[in-house]
Design a protein around this nucleic acid. Structure first.
Lengths: 192, 192
DNA sequence: TCGCGTACATAACAAGTGTTCGGTACTATA
DNA sequence: TATAGTACCGAACACTTGTTATGTACGCGA
């Protein structure tokens, strides 16, 4: 049982190509051949590492999640956690574009649908303790922290979508301002 | 110059087929043949009314906008306007699914990108006077009404996406509650 | 009645799709 | 050194895609 090539490393090469394709053309442009071409190889190569297109797509979503996780600092405070999800850098923009693009196929395919649902659940779960902390700090109003986490996730992702379609209007500065303004509008302390 | 068939009426038939395809499979499933099959006709029929697939897609988006407009009552108050955008009925869910699904192709195609950007702009513009009214009524905090309109649109659409992926959790009742809770959390009057 | 233009159907085309298959190079083990 | 298994390449298969071309039925104006 030889292992002439580092399988995992080579697989990461393919992953990188997948990501490049995705970042440029979204899921609509993700094909075996586009990945192969991006990699300078054959479709057989791609199929050697991903047995079917469905697996390729699933892997692409895992990739997006992985990159998202890497982008988000180990949950410090709420503001930081939400800021990390905004398209403030080219890389973050890329990741968000891929996410939004994935929703077409994710809404159609039952398995991907379930995965995306679980992903959202995880995000809200990760947000919840930060919400509770903000509440005890008096930065957020009382009320069900789960509901608040949902609302903040909604606000953030909704803002992401608008920003992706209108990056000129929604500059990083403006996005950060909008998030801050929103948080302080929610804050029971801040009022005039 | 004969007009043996009511052109506009027949075109609406094709439109209806387009919508059915879209509602079931999203933009990924929108093909000349799927529309033709849904209609019980040939691809030639479809092309007779829409010269290319690109035009078909553009028409599909217009369709979605039309249905959205029909769903939203002539802007009364802010709460009603935002509620109308939520997937509270099967029809509203269908429309929202189509919108979210469209983002994949809309992010890729420059023309569709511009159209979607304009659509968001229109929505915020329509929301703005309602925001101002709510502010004068003391239901919303002071601050740039444009920013607030953006934030509320963001919250709403972000909630839509979560609801589409988890309709069991986000029942119509829960969605309405989340919107109301969010509005009252923003209200300067409500605080404890 | 003649023709012209509409409204399609049918078929074909070229390109692109996921997937399969045979072959080859190469390497670690026996 | 033989062999088995990995890691591919290149071509092909069967199908779907948007689009084009050909043909035809049919109603209106001349």
């Amino acid at each position: 049982m030889p292992a002439k090539v580092d399988h995992e490393a080579r697989r990461r090469d393919v992953s990188a190509a997948v990501w490049r394709v995705l970042a440029e053309g979204g899921f609509g442009a993700l094909t075996m051949r586009s990945v192969a071409a991006e990699l300078g190889g054959s479709t057989g190569l791609v199929m050697h590492y991903f047995a079917s297109k469905h697996e390729l797509i699933k892997h692409a979503l895992e990739l997006a999640e992985e990159r998202t996780r890497a982008l988000i600092p180990a949950a410090t405070d709420l503001r930081t956690a939400l800021t990390a999800a905004l398209p403030l850098t080219p890389e973050a923009t890329e990741i968000n574009r891929v996410w939004v693009s994935s929703w077409d196929v994710a809404l159609t395919d039952p398995e991907l649908h379930a995965l995306e649902k679980a992903r959202y659940r995880r995000w809200r779960t990760r947000l919840r303790p930060l919400v509770i902390r903000a509440q005890t700090d008096g930065d957020l109003p009382h009320g069900d922290p789960t509901d608040l986490a949902t609302a903040l996730a909604a606000f953030t992702h909704g803002l992401v979508v608008q920003a992706l379609f209108d990056p000129t209007t929604y500059t990083p500065k403006r996005l950060q301002h909008l998030l801050d303004a929103h948080l302080s509008a929610l804050s029971p302390a801040t009022r005039r």
